[in-house]
Amino acid sequence: MKKDHHESDAFYEEFEVFSKKKDGSPIQHQFSLLAPNEEMALIMAKENFFRREPAVDIWVVKRSNIRKLAQSEKEALKKLDKPYRETKGYADLNRRWRAFKEKGKDEWLKGEKEA
């Protein structure tokens, strides 16, 4: 049987499916499916990925509409440490507060004696 692959290619469009689990939670990627168009993708998504899991919202996005990173771009995401913009860059604060507390205690004790 001769087949027209062009038609079946058009039927098998890739859609990415996202959902929100409950009110207030963020939208999360779930999986992908094949469907000929958005409307079909939506009615398929519900039963393919949420038979048991709860969902309060479902999105379908045609994969070709997503700009993804190439591998080089992903590799380039690995950053040098930037301690000045993370809490771990300020690990010395506790020690310094402690020093003030120790000093404060001495100062206070000194004051007591003098009085």
Partner: peptide, 11 residues
């Protein structure tokens, strides 16, 4: 007609 529909129809 296709697998995704098979699953959806069954529900």
């Amino acid at each position: 007609p296709h697998i995704e529909e098979d699953v959806a129809f069954s529900s």
